[in-house]
Write a protein that binds this DNA or RNA. Structure first.
Length: 578
DNA sequence: TACTGCACTTAGAAGTATGGAG
DNA sequence: CTCCATACTTCTAAGTGCAGTA
């Protein structure tokens, strides 16, 4: 069997009919799995002796262990993290654990530590890397490619599949998002004896580096991961899994959208049901119904409970607290306005003012009565209760399915509404991006405005102005050419008019393209389109739209995305309906 | 029923490659 | 050809949800 695996590796079997292959039942994910194991982070290279660390103004040679951790901090010196108290405190505490007893007794105050020589050294190194010759860069590229070819693929059943993350995360300082209580802690180096390998019994097992052993080799075909280890910050498990282009991820993705489409068929019934439930005599049912309304209408996340003090304080729907909502019986001419203001996943702020139905508003008043700001809004509800209820309403239904459903249906509707048949392709793509943007806004997918945003907008405006000047020049030239032709009435001047006319036309097109680009960019300033495109939008909607309007799929999906959505590109024709 | 561990999806930031303008 | 903004890729944190256990 192992030999057979190898043969597949060499021949790279055709993927043509993979979506039609039979599926396994009862949780079996594969029958054969062979891989080479992970690639470890490169070992620490001590600093050259001329690069010094100073404590209290005096140079100090650190032990390799302490020095390595110091370099992690030095590399982040320009980052805001290193100014934060919690980050500094956590870092210093963990750094001290790596010090020798002498170092520990000398280095007692982070403020007296001077990492600037180290920092300069790393900056110089990165400059040097940029300045390398083509040949040197090519060599590195080839080495990376070799590593990818050796470790970046596995055999799962009859296919050679790309692995998503075959490199083990290198050691460093933990960078939590938002106000994370553990930011700055030392993320320790992962060694072979920390690693669990998962592969099939009849495969050729990966070999640990010379002189080391794996923690365990197991053969669990009810899971999809190849390698796992336990991370030391939260104590959670990390995995090496397959690329999104793989059969196992693709099928799962497809299944996700099929579940969302089943929700489409019964969503009216469910909506009617939760509206009824707003009137229930039971508090738990009213809470469940209002929460579901938010999840449906506002595409909120479920909101699992989190361990206090272990992570940043963020919430989702079921974990909303009284302090996260303000009720306005009347505001800006609208009745029953709810103002949401809370931090969601990744500590991204959710701010929204929404008019709701009177019954919802009255219920919210009731839920908030006699509560402190930090009390739960839905005190009789959690995600497990909600999901159990959803499961009864539809097989496979959970809170997150609503996000998928509402995102995909919104894209489909917006595309219908925004696409103009007689637009040219750039304008059609703008419409697509606008539809995509509507979804990103619904799902609250934000990004930090690019650091160079203002400048790049200005640059674009300059270009537009220049193009306008160019256009008026061209028009003037056309006019005089016409006048000239009228007088002369010869072939040569007629031709000149045609040339000028073409020039005007070309410049007009260029100008329009630039203006479209400016609009698109401005509207996109703080909005991230990628997340919804990758995780929430049924790709078959986009494929069908491309086919219908003759837009090349490459304009919508880049290479990686086309690989991930190969199943959809294969499957959907132009009349596909979500 | 609550709790916890595990597996897997979703997320924005950071790092790197690329291609178009000058 | 070079430079720089943009596009793409990688990274890994932070969610969801389920199953097993007490």
């Amino acid at each position: 069997r192992a030999r057979r695996g190898l043969r597949v590796l060499q021949h790279n079997v055709s993927l043509e009919f993979r979506w039609e292959e039979e599926r396994y039942t009862d949780g079996v994910k594969w029958k054969f799995l062979e891989h080479k194991g992970p690639v470890f982070a490169p070992p620490y290279e001590p600093l050259p002796s001329n690069v010094k660390f100073y404590y209290d103004g005096k140079p100090m040679k650190l032990s390799p262990e302490a020095e390595e951790v110091a370099t992690f901090f030095a590399k982040m010196l320009d980052h805001e993290y290193t100014t934060k108290d919690i980050f500094r405190k956590n870092f210093f505490k963990d750094w001290r654990k790596e010090m020798t007893s002498e170092e520990k007794s000398t280095i007692t105050d982070l403020k007296k530590c001077n990492f600037s020589e180290m920092s300069e050294y790393f900056k110089a190194q990165s400059e040097a890397r940029k300045a390398m010759t083509k040949e040197q860069k090519q060599k590195i590229k080839e080495e990376n490619e070799r590593l990818l070819q050796e470790y970046g693929f596995c055999i799962m059943d009859n296919h050679k599949e790309r692995i998503a993350n075959f490199r083990i995360e290198p050691p460093g300082l933990f960078r939590g998002r938002g106000d994370h209580p553990k930011m700055g802690m030392l993320k320790r180096r992962i060694r072979p004896q920390d690693i669990i390998i998962n592969c099939s019994k009849d495969s050729k097992y990966p070999t640990p580096p010379p002189g080391t052993k794996w923690k365990e080799v197991r053969h669990d075909n009810k899971v999809t991961w190849l390698v796992s280890w336990t991370e030391n910050i939260q104590g959670s498990i990390k995995y090496i899994m397959l690329n999104p282009s793989s059969r196992i991820k693709g099928e799962k993705d497809w299944q996700k959208y099929e579940t969302a489409r089943r929700l489409k068929k019964c969503v009216d019934r469910l909506r009617a049901q939760y509206r009824e439930d707003w009137k229930s005599k039971e508090m738990r049912i009213r809470q469940r119904a209002v929460a579901l309304y938010f999840i449906d209408k506002l595409a909120l996340r479920a909101g699992n409970e989190k361990e206090e003090g272990e992570t940043a304080d963020t919430v989702g729907c079921c974990s909303l607290r009284v302090e996260h909502l303000k009720l306005h019986p009347e505001s800006e001419g609208q009745e029953f306005v709810v103002e949401f203001d809370f931090l969601g996943k990744d500590s991204i702020r959710y701010y929204n003012r929404v008019p709701v139905e009177k019954r919802v508003f009255k219920n919210l008043q009731l839920f908030m009565e006699n509560k402190e700001p930090d009390d739960d809004l839905f005190d009789r509800l959690n995600t497990s209760i909600l999901n159990k209820h959803l499961q009864e309403l539809m097989d496979g239904l959970t809170a997150k399915v609503f996000r998928t459903y509402n995102a995909s249906i919104t894209l489909q509707q917006q595309l219908k509404e925004l696409t103009n048949a007689d637009d040219n392709i750039p304008a059609k793509i703008l419409s697509y991006n606008r539809a995509n943007r509507a979804v990103a806004i619904l799902c609250n997918h934000q990004r930090a405005p690019p650091k160079t945003f203002e400048k790049s907008m200005q640059n674009l405006q300059t270009k537009i102005d220049a193009k306008k000047d160019q256009l008026s020049d061209a028009k003037r030239e056309l006019k005089s050419a016409k006048a000239d032709a009228k007088v002369r009435r010869d072939e040569k001047s007629k031709k000149a008019v045609e040339t000028k006319r073409k020039a005007v036309q070309r410049i007009e097109e260029q100008l329009m393209k630039l203006e479209v680009q400016a609009t698109d960019r401005e509207e996109n300033k703080q909005i991230a389109l990628g997340t919804s495109k990758l995780n929430y939008l049924d790709p078959r909607i986009s494929v069908a739209w491309c086919k219908k309007w003759g837009v090349p799929i490459e304009k919508i999906y880049n290479k990686t995305q086309r690989e991930k959505f190969a199943w959809a590109i294969d499957m959907a024709d132009e009349d596909y309906e979500f």
